[in-house]
Amino acid sequence: MVTLTDNAIGLIRRLTARPGVPDQAGLRIATGSGAGALTVGVVSGPLDGDHIVDSSGARVFLDAAAVRALDDKSLDAALQDGTVTFTVTDRPA
């Protein structure tokens, strides 16, 4: 299962704590249109069939293909010039 770095946890919590965002909101990662592509976005809640990862209050919803693609990965995040960037890396052994 994908793990979240401390940076990712903090930024996901900030994104989902904004005014007007529902309490059950989280970051959804799903398969994109290209081979190996993933889409990422803040959503109000999981879709049917999503797997939910909750790490210290940072909620991530994964579709079935994203679960498989990120099984042995780590999700990191960075904030630069007001833009959040997510990076997927192999989980350290």
Rank of each mutant, 00 (worst) to 15 (best):
V67A: 06
Q80N: 14
D76N: 10
R68D: 11
Q24I: 11
D54P: 07
G32K: 13
A37W: 05
R68W: 08
D72Q: 03
A69I: 10
D54K: 07
G34E: 13
A69C: 12
G41H: 08
S44I: 02
A30Y: 04
I52C: 10
G49P: 13
K73H: 05
R28K: 12
S74D: 05
V67F: 06
V67N: 09
K73G: 06
T31I: 15
G26K: 02
Q80R: 13
G41I: 04
G41E: 10
S56I: 03
G49M: 07
A64G: 14
R68P: 03
R59H: 05
D71W: 10
S74P: 01
A35L: 15
L75Y: 01
L27F: 10
L38T: 08
V67P: 04
I52D: 03
S44Y: 09
D72F: 05
G26R: 00
A65I: 11
A35Q: 12
A77K: 02
D72S: 08
R68Y: 10
Q80G: 10
T31H: 15
A78C: 05
A69D: 05
L79K: 15
A37Q: 12
A25W: 03
S56L: 07
D71M: 12
Q24K: 13
A65P: 02
A35F: 14
L38I: 11
D54H: 04
S44D: 14
A37K: 12
G26F: 02
D81Q: 13
F61L: 01
P46W: 06
A69G: 10
F61D: 01
A66S: 04
A66H: 00
A25P: 04
A30V: 07
L75G: 02
A77H: 03
